[in-house]
């Protein structure tokens, strides 16, 4: 009997329709319910390298020390310098060594959160890897995405990374103290941000001098307060 060789005998098409990052989404959902059970406000902070992201987080936690109880998860290439810097603010800090990874994943964040004491905490800040492309598709279970750029990076920065800016809840323009000296076209920059990310709340700050930080703090405190149970109506 002659056997017919070929795929037609047994080949079959299977519909899959599954997200490639679905595993990450499962971990992100798990993180989100853990954070929700602790009434934690969780920020995922993203920027390019050198935008002053660590300084921004450090200053936020230091200045807010008496108003909000914060912790940080830092994604860092190898050394734990950023985590050490942030620990100076008195906040709990855990480092995720990312090696050559270009983004944080939800599973890593879940493990790192396990090393933190989540009791009596108001805000958890996740400092993502310095990259405005790769992390965009990875949900970490955060409540808010904060995308930071420095005025020194130029007013066309949002045009170079439109996908990331379109996912931002907050856009921080840092280094505003030296914006003018750097030839930063502020009006064009704000227009670019508004048109690319109309959903985002924008803050112009200097993490170095503190310029504009108070508005950011007030907004952040308000968001944290929304996490707390509203006072129960009088019976």
């Amino acid at each position: 009997m002659k056997q017919i060789a070929g795929d037609s005998l047994s080949a079959q098409t299977i519909a899959v329709n599954e997200g490639i990052l679905s595993k990450n989404d499962v971990f992100a959902a798990r993180n989100r319910s853990l954070f929700a059970s602790r009434r934690l406000l969780v920020l995922n902070v993203l920027s390019s390298p050198g935008s002053g992201k660590t300084a921004f987080i450090e200053r936020t936690l230091t200045d807010l020390r008496s108003r909000l109880r914060g912790a940080v998860i830092v994604g860092d290439l190898a050394t734990d310098n950023d985590a050490k810097r942030i620990a100076r603010s008195g906040a709990q800090a855990v480092q995720i060594t990312t090696g050559d990874m270009c983004h944080l994943e939800a599973e890593m964040v879940g493990k790192a959160a396990g090393q933190l004491n989540l009791d009596n905490l108001d805000v958890l800040i996740i400092e993502n890897v310095g990259n405005l492309v790769c992390p965009s598709g990875y949900d970490l279970g955060e409540n808010l995405r904060v995308v930071l750029l420095a005025a020194t990076e130029g007013e066309d920065k949002p045009l170079k990374y439109p996908v990331m800016f379109k996912t931002a809840d907050v856009v921080i323009v840092n280094k505003m103290d030296i914006a003018e000296a750097a030839g930063f076209d502020r009006a064009t920059a704000l227009d670019n941000i508004r048109r690319i990310a109309p959903q985002a709340t924008v803050f112009e700050v200097s993490a170095r001098t503190g310029l504009g930080m108070e508005q950011w703090y007030a907004w952040l405190e308000q968001r944290c307060a929304q996490k707390q149970p509203s006072p129960s109506p009088a019976a």
């Binding site: 098409t13 299977i14 899959v16 329709n17 997200g19 490639i20 379109k166 109309p198």
Partner: peptide, 22 residues
Amino acid sequence: SLNVQIRKGRELELAFLEVSQQ
């Protein structure tokens, strides 16, 4: 208006496969 919703474009999916037992 800039007040629009993104409906498609974020996909990163495995749609289907062709397999066999050989």
